[in-house]
Design a protein around this nucleic acid. Sequence first.
DNA 1: GCCCAGGTGGGTA
DNA 2: TACCCACATGGG
Length: 219
Amino acid sequence: MGGAPLLMDVYDRLLKQYGAQGWWPARSPFEVMVGAVLVQATAWSNAEKAISNLRAAGALSASAIRGLEVEALEELVRPSGFFRAKARKLKALCEFLCERYGDDIASMSMDGTERLRRDLLGVYGVGEETADDILLYALGRPVFVVDAYTRRVFGRLGFDEAEARYGEFQALFHERLSRDAALYNEYHALIVRHANSTCRSKPLCEGCPLSAECPRVGV
DNA sequence: GCCCAGGTGGGTA
DNA sequence: TACCCACATGGG
């Protein structure tokens, strides 16, 4: 299987096909964090409804979310699914932001990426993918996000690592691409765009921009 | 009606 | 460690 040239070639093909995506769709780093929790195991369209509810309720801040009764928060995030669990998770995240950073998101830039990741993983409801969403899209750290889209797209390209544990699959990208937050940001956004543009039933679709690199072509 | 969607935490062998 | 399972709404 190819190394850096292949991964950059895939990136170039996606960028040429879809253009720059300008992710994450959020108005602030805090909104990225909230979205990263709300989108867990759910379609983005549902997470978006919940975010709209929070915005309309004036609850898109850590202090506002802490101040809400949990039942009220549950109702606001209901459209995102698993709403009782996600309300708890948002509460936990906002408690963390207050206790550790005094709600000053900008002050998170004082901590190293490894330290931030370790601390985030200690927050209820924040697993590896959510932590990396926050690190990359809210804080601009060069961390490649591994999600269901990443695994699906690269699994189709024949990457056996797509079945591997999170850290091993992530290391594939960290080792073969330069440590560049802007690159990882755009790359993952393009993966999502691509995965949402192609059918799920075939290895690769007709006219797929990645087909020339697919080792399964002709099999 | 059925299936799926940008995970995570908790329990069990 | 390696599986299970619960958690829940909305769109195709």
